[in-house]
Simulated assay, not measured.
Amino acid sequence: MARSASLNEEMRAESRQKILAAALEVFAEKGYHGATITEITRRAGVSRGLASYYFPNKHLLVDELIDAYLDGVAAVVDVPGTPDERLAGIIDGVLGGLLENLPVQGVILSLVVQPSTHPIFAEVEARKDERLSLLEDSLRELFAGRGAEDPAVEEVMLRSVLEGVIYKAVVYGPQYPVEQVRRWLYRTYGLPEPETTLSGEEPAPVGRLRASDRGF
C-alpha cells in the first residue's frame, strides 16, 4: 500500500531534524572544520544519499541552523502583557532557553563569530531582515511604553547585555550564575523580584568564574 502524502512529508521532516540535530552534536564536538558530512550522516542514522539530498554541503547545514536560531530569537519577544510583563517574559525566555540548551548556544555562537562561517550568518540575517526589524521595533515600542528617553538605545543595550550573558555562559558553562544575573536584570529594569527560579532549584552562591577543560 502506498504511503500517504502527509506521512511522506512527516518522514521527510523527521529525517531533516535528525540530520540537523546530528550536525549540532558534531559541530559541538569537532568544530565546523573538523565536522564531516559522513560523521553527521552516521550520527543521524540516515543514508549519505539522503543527507546529501537535503544538505549537499556543510554551508547549507549552517545556514539552516542559524536560520532556526534567528527564528527562535525573534519569537522570544512575542509575549503578551504590559511593557513590564513583556520585558520580564523576554528576559526569562532568553535565560530559560540558555539553561535548557547551553551546548546548542555554544555551537551557534561559534558559527556566528568564526571568520569562515560568519558570512553565512550575514546571509541569513539579511534574508530575515524583515522579521528581525519587527523584533527591533517591538522592543523599541516596549521601551517607549516604559517611558524610555531613547527606546532605540534601550533595545540595543538589552540585546547586547543578553548576548553578553549568553557568551559568558557558553564560556563558563553551568557554573555561570544565570539565576543571579536574572535577578540583577530585574532590579536594573525596576521589575518586581521573581517569585520562582527558572530551574526550579535555589541557585548556589556565586563563585569565581574559571574556564574548565571538561566542557559542558
Rank of each mutant, 00 (worst) to 15 (best):
29 E>A: 14
168 K>R: 15
4 S>D: 12
147 G>F: 11
76 V>E: 09
111 L>G: 03
65 L>G: 02
181 V>Q: 01
190 G>E: 05
15 S>N: 10
43 R>V: 05
214 R>D: 15
133 S>N: 13
71 D>I: 13
210 R>I: 14
109 L>G: 07
86 R>I: 00
33 H>L: 10
42 R>H: 05
66 I>E: 14
152 A>V: 14
172 Y>W: 08
30 K>R: 15
106 G>Y: 03
20 L>Q: 09
175 Q>A: 11
90 I>N: 01
58 K>I: 08
202 E>R: 13
66 I>C: 08
128 K>D: 03
6 S>L: 11
57 N>F: 05
159 R>L: 13
87 L>I: 13
99 L>G: 04
68 A>I: 04
179 E>H: 01
71 D>E: 15
8 N>D: 01
73 V>H: 01
127 R>E: 13
46 V>G: 03
189 Y>L: 07
196 T>Y: 10
163 E>M: 14
196 T>K: 14
184 W>C: 01
199 S>E: 10
12 R>M: 07
155 E>T: 14
117 T>S: 11
195 E>Y: 05
123 E>F: 05
74 A>G: 11
101 N>V: 00
112 V>H: 05
4 S>A: 09
209 L>E: 07
130 E>V: 13
114 Q>K: 05
159 R>F: 07
59 H>C: 02
21 A>Y: 02
6 S>H: 01
59 H>W: 12
159 R>T: 07
81 G>F: 11
97 G>A: 02
79 V>Q: 09
108 I>S: 06
139 L>V: 09
186 Y>P: 01
80 P>H: 11
4 S>L: 14
26 V>A: 07
129 D>H: 15
177 P>F: 01
50 L>S: 08
53 Y>V: 02
84 D>W: 00
111 L>M: 11
1 M>F: 08
159 R>Q: 11
67 D>A: 12
20 L>C: 06
201 E>G: 00
3 R>I: 07
78 D>R: 09
44 A>Q: 06
20 L>S: 06
138 S>W: 02
124 V>M: 11
197 T>F: 13
59 H>A: 04
134 L>Q: 11
213 D>P: 08
207 G>N: 01
41 T>A: 07
136 E>R: 15
